[in-house]
């Protein structure tokens, strides 16, 4: 049996397949399928300082080999997460990554300050790439200087490995990656969703109440793979690759592109057993190909290998 353990800047995981934020709630809904300790880590639903109601419905639209969402960060607020969801997840043996969001630098500072007092948190992922909120969200993730500022503000309070989640809605993702790396990001996760839309021919209106939303699913995989491959050549930080992963084959391609771990997003929504199937599939493939560790295949598709 190949070794699936990975260590990303001190974030040590039993396996490299995580649940991506926003597709897994706080884990409770998946307990009826498998234990919360099974994913390498759970990236919890995106948090804001105050409880957030989210956007009007429809919030979901299906697209070719994928889907659009405009949930709008519906969440109970960081305090409820610290008081209820985090202790519950830890009691289930889960590795927990908090995903944090803000409309301003002050929001990011406040939420990371509150989280610094929480016990049991394994890492913090900073979402500077949500396309579904008006102020903040993706705005911070599309400008290298702003992305660097957010990183700096959160880093000040962060006592666990700091992950910055990058937006694909940029011309040059490596510029953002370099900017956040310079301010102390420990790990990068990419990609968030691509801004897109769907139109209903019958009503002659956009399907989503918010008009536009984030595209995810297998349709975005080639874009995600390319961006992981580019960033892996640019900065020397571990990368959590995500974007359209629904099978072990998909996941393996991300490791070959330079990812140190992967996350499953929309795949959880269509197949509740997606993560356990991918973990098993990776292990089987490594054995079959004669690798002893998942780390042995990392970056094999990068130039120079």
């Amino acid at each position: 049996m190949a070794d699936l353990k990975v260590n990303l800047a001190g974030l040590a995981l039993d396996n490299p397949v995580m649940a991506a934020s926003g597709t897994y709630g706080f884990g409770r809904e998946f307990l009826k399928f498998y234990p919360s300790s099974l994913p390498g880590a759970i990236m919890a639903k995106g948090l804001t300082v105050e409880p957030t109601a989210g956007n009007p419905t429809p919030r979901i639209a299906e697209t070719p080999a994928g889907m659009l969402n405009s949930i709008g960060l519906q969440n109970p607020g960081v305090d409820a997460f610290i008081a209820e969801e985090l202790p519950w997840l830890k009691s289930q043996g889960a590795r927990v990554i908090a995903n944090i969001n803000g409309h301003s630098l002050k929001d990011f500072e406040e939420i990371s300050r509150r989280l610094s007092a929480a016990t049991g948190l394994d890492a913090i992922e900073v979402n500077i790439s949500c396309p579904n909120v008006d102020n903040g969200g993706m705005f911070f993730g599309t400008d290298p200087a702003l992305a660097a500022q957010v990183t700096k503000v959160v880093k000040k309070h962060c006592r666990v490995p700091l992950i910055i989640k990058l937006s694909p809605n940029v011309t040059d993702i490596t510029a953002i990656a370099k900017a956040v790396a310079a301010e102390g990001a420990d790990i990068l996760s990419l990609i968030n969703t691509l801004l897109g839309m769907a139109i209903d021919r019958k009503t002659r209106r956009p399907v989503l109440a918010r008009q536009v939303g984030g595209l995810s699913g297998p349709a975005v995989k080639p874009v995600a793979l390319r961006m992981v491959w580019q960033v892996a050549q640019t900065v020397d930080l571990p990368i959590i690759g995500m974007g359209g992963i629904v099978s072990a084959e998909d996941a393996i391609e991300f490791f070959l592109a330079g990812a140190a771990a992967v996350a499953v997003g929309s795949g959880n929504l269509t197949n509740p057993y997606c993560i356990p199937e991918i973990v098993a599939g990776i292990s089987q493939w490594l054995d079959q190909e004669g690798y002893v560790s998942i780390n042995d295949i990392r970056g094999l598709a990068l130039p120079g290998h």
């Binding site: 926003g22 897994y24 709630g25 809904e29 419905t57 639209a61 969402n69 949930i71 959880n268 929504l269």
Partner: peptide, 15 residues
């Protein structure tokens, strides 16, 4: 409501 997962995970069908 339009649903993503039907499992309570995606928050797509909130009322």
């Amino acid at each position: 409501e339009r649903m993503g997962c039907g499992l309570g995970a995606c928050m797509g069908c909130t009322v």
